[in-house]
Simulated assay, not measured.
Amino acid sequence: MKTPPPANRIAERKLRDKQTRRAQIITAARQIAEIEGWSNVTVRRLADEISYSQPVLYAHFENREGILAAVAIEGFQELGLALEKARKRVKRGSTVESVAAAYLEFAASSPAMYEAMFSLTLTVPFDNAATPPELRFAFSQFLELFQGQSLKPEVLSELFWANLHGIAELTRTKRFPPSRQKERVRTLVDLFTLPR
């Protein structure tokens, strides 16, 4: 196997270093948000946290919103993987129920991430040509649940997602008592899996 020319190795190393710094910025933003909330995630604070200058952060992200959008996109990838795993691991029982439980577990276990994905005002596009693949991947896990239904899978997926999001938010803000969570999920699943 030939060794790449030195210029290629240098370019590859620079790219790896850039990807590593970008990942450090995103990780630091997530950690600060989980402990202190998104209002404490500032470019200055991130620069201090990871020991880089603010210009280095601006070389990776145009502004604070760019960092938050990157966190949200990473969250959709993680959510998609969790839903895919839940969808594929079901041997007996309901795949729809397994996905619902995985969704609610993700929302409960990563509240700051979930907030970045759904509650912060970001310009991450949904359902158009510019939608990042991570968002499409997460949504495709819902679509898989409703293929072959008499209603449009896209509409059923959107409605199922909207219901899960509502349950997640109302549970997080303590409007829904946790004691009825399993019953809520079972009833929701029944509504979406009844023969049509």
Score class of each variant (00 low, 15 high):
residue 147 Q to T: 09
residue 143 L to V: 06
residue 152 K to C: 07
residue 166 G to V: 00
residue 157 S to D: 03
residue 166 G to C: 03
residue 161 W to K: 11
residue 161 W to N: 09
residue 148 G to S: 04
residue 178 P to R: 11
residue 146 F to L: 05
residue 148 G to L: 02
residue 142 F to S: 08
residue 142 F to P: 04
residue 169 E to I: 09
residue 179 S to N: 11
residue 163 N to E: 09
residue 145 L to P: 09
residue 167 I to M: 05
residue 184 R to S: 10
residue 144 E to A: 15
residue 176 F to K: 06
residue 177 P to D: 13
residue 176 F to P: 00
residue 165 H to D: 08
residue 167 I to Q: 01
residue 142 F to T: 06
residue 169 E to G: 00
residue 156 L to V: 01
residue 174 K to V: 05
residue 143 L to D: 05
residue 167 I to V: 15
residue 178 P to V: 12
residue 145 L to Q: 09
residue 172 R to Q: 14
residue 146 F to K: 06
residue 142 F to H: 14
residue 175 R to N: 13
residue 160 F to A: 02
residue 168 A to L: 04
residue 166 G to I: 00
residue 177 P to K: 13
residue 149 Q to T: 14
residue 174 K to N: 12
residue 148 G to C: 03
residue 170 L to Q: 13
residue 164 L to F: 02
residue 168 A to R: 04
residue 179 S to L: 14
residue 156 L to T: 01
residue 154 E to T: 12
residue 177 P to N: 13
residue 179 S to E: 15
residue 151 L to Q: 11
residue 185 V to F: 08
residue 156 L to R: 12
residue 149 Q to C: 09
residue 172 R to N: 05
residue 164 L to E: 02
residue 160 F to E: 03
residue 179 S to K: 12
residue 150 S to K: 11
residue 178 P to S: 11
residue 152 K to H: 12
residue 159 L to H: 06
residue 143 L to C: 07
residue 185 V to Y: 06
residue 169 E to C: 04
residue 183 E to L: 14
residue 182 K to I: 11
residue 151 L to M: 08
residue 159 L to R: 10
residue 170 L to S: 10
residue 172 R to Y: 03
residue 169 E to R: 12
residue 165 H to N: 07
residue 158 E to C: 01
residue 143 L to G: 14
residue 151 L to I: 00
residue 164 L to H: 01
residue 146 F to A: 03
residue 157 S to Q: 03
residue 180 R to I: 15
residue 142 F to D: 04
residue 143 L to M: 15
residue 171 T to E: 12
residue 158 E to I: 03
residue 180 R to Y: 09
